[in-house]
Design a protein around this nucleic acid. Structure first.
Length: 419
RNA sequence: GGAGAGAUGGCUGAGCGGUUGAAAGCACCGGUCUUGAAAACCGGCGUGGGGGCAACUCCAUCCUGGGUUCGAAUCCCAGUCUCUCCGCCA
């Protein structure tokens, strides 16, 4: 959420910055609504003052007049509220402004590779896709999921289910023990207000699974990522500086409609309506955002290092970043069956963009109350890590070697074989 | 699900129709004292918004939304949440 005061004070630089996002924005309308809103506020407040003075005077002869003023106030309030709602609707649908470090570009073609890591394995046979491997092992069942639930779901069974569980524990342990994150097991359902805080609402309502609630005007949603619920733990709060940075990690299912991606990645587990993800969230002092982003991204890549999976790190360009982000690193893991890198983690700094929406603040060193900085990153997406392990560790006979680091989490089995 | 109690500033907590934006304490900040610290004493200290270059000023805000009244933290109605007790249940 942007500060209308800042926009008003420097319309030109705001317009220039937001252009980097390649969105349509009617700045004239914003300015007009803002002016109207303030005009009505002034009118309303001068009437309120008048009314207050009458009431203070306790002069009975003026009481009748006061009643009339009340009616007038009500009329103007309605107009003011209308302008304010319209203005807020527009403001709350404008994405965050990209940081200066961020390359300018319209879509993923302008993303920039920063580094590559790990050895890409040579296969002396044709590497299979994860879904072929999984189906042959009888440990991934997409048809069964279609029968019970619908498309874009999967049954993970047997040793692959164990692998999935092991990954969750391994990642959590690493972030808790080595990276200073505090484990949280959060609710998987969030209120509309919470969804607004991190930027899922109002603009991305179509991507969310909403629960059907009887007899209640309240709206509730399945979380699309633990970022939503973890970041909002500080909403409507003034945090003590000594408690910053706050680092939280959770392993949760995530639910996404994937609207607008029909026909994309329909085969296999790449794009599902439900998947597990280990999510890191940091709440920091504003000026620490970029340092924390580097740190968080390292926490994510460390997992891939330990799993010995090849990956690359890229920085997203201005047009490809998520709504709330000012700067984002994506980590992409190598998938032999596709001979390309696929996203497995996304780490973003949201500056104070979400904090403003959530009203999450802290007292800085000058004892001023200011908005915190928020960051989130996957560490990592479990489903996609499962895929990457299957494909990169596959053998010619269709079995899958268990990475060393995971064996203690998997009853010390070394290989996943067909039963 | 049933029955009660409650929701006030960063925290604790008074107020229960008319300078109450709100006592008091704690915390915090500044100062005096002290070699330094503590203690003691003095002063300051909520949030959001509007106007103004500024000094400053105005409005809102005592869970949320309605209502009564010239006037509401205080009265009425609805809702949300929290706590206690009972019931049911993983």
């Amino acid at each position: 959420m942007h500060n209308i005061k800042e926009i008003r004070n420097d319309i030109e630089s705001f317009t220039k910055s937001i252009k980097k996002r390649y969105i349509d924005l009617d700045i004239e309308e914003i300015i007009l609504l803002d002016e109207n809103n303030r005009k009505f506020i002034q009118k309303k407040e001068s009437l309120e003052k008048e009314k207050k003075d009458i009431s203070k005077s306790k002069n009975k002869s003026l009481f009748e007049k006061s009643k009339k003023i009340s009616i007038e106030i009500e009329k103007i309030s309605k107009l003011q509220l209308l302008a304010k709602i319209k203005l807020d609707n527009i403001l709350s649908s404008i994405p965050n402004i990209p940081h200066n470090d961020v390359p300018i570009g319209k879509d993923e073609n302008s993303n920039v590779e920063i580094s590559k890591s790990g050895e890409i394995a040579e296969f002396n046979f044709n590497p299979k896709s994860h879904y072929k491997l999984g189906e042959d092992l009888d440990m991934l069942d997409f048809d069964l999921a279609t029968k019970t639930t619908g498309s874009r779901f999967v049954f993970v069974k047997d040793k692959l289910a164990l692998l999935e569980r092991a990954l969750s524990n391994f990642m959590l342990d690493t972030h808790i023990i080595n990276n200073g994150y505090k484990e949280v097991s959060p609710p998987l359902i969030a209120t509309a207000d919470t969804m607004f805080g991190t930027g899922q609402l109002p603009k991305f309502e179509n991507d969310q699974f909403e629960l059907k609630l009887e007899d209640s005007p309240e709206r509730k949603f399945l979380i699309p990522t633990a970022e939503v619920i973890l970041t909002n733990t500080v909403k409507n709060q003034i945090i003590e500086r000594k408690n910053l940075p706050m680092r939280l990690v959770a392993s949760t299912p995530c639910f996404r409609k994937e609207a607008g991606s029909y026909g994309k990645d329909t085969k296999g587990m790449i794009r599902q309506h439900q998947f597990y993800k280990v999510e890191m969230v940091s709440i920091v002092e504003q000026d620490q955002c970029l340092n924390e982003l580097e740190r968080m991204t390292d926490c994510a890549t460390k997992i891939l290092d330990l799993l010995k999976l090849p990956y690359r790190k890229i920085i997203l360009c201005s047009g490809d970043m998520g709504f709330s982000a000012e700067k984002t690193f994506d980590i992409e893991v190598w998938l032999p069956s596709e001979s390309k890198y696929r996203e497995i983690s996304s780490c973003s700094s949201c500056s104070s963009f979400q904090a403003r929406r959530m009203k999450a603040r802290y007292k800085n060193e000058n004892r001023e109350t200011v908005f915190v900085g928020t960051l989130n990153g996957s560490g990592l997406a479990i489903g996609r890590t499962l895929i990457a392990i299957m494909e990169n560790y596959q053998q010619s006979d269709g079995s899958i070697i268990v990475p060393d680091i995971l064996r203690s989490y998997m009853n010390n089995i070394e290989k996943i074989n067909k039963n």
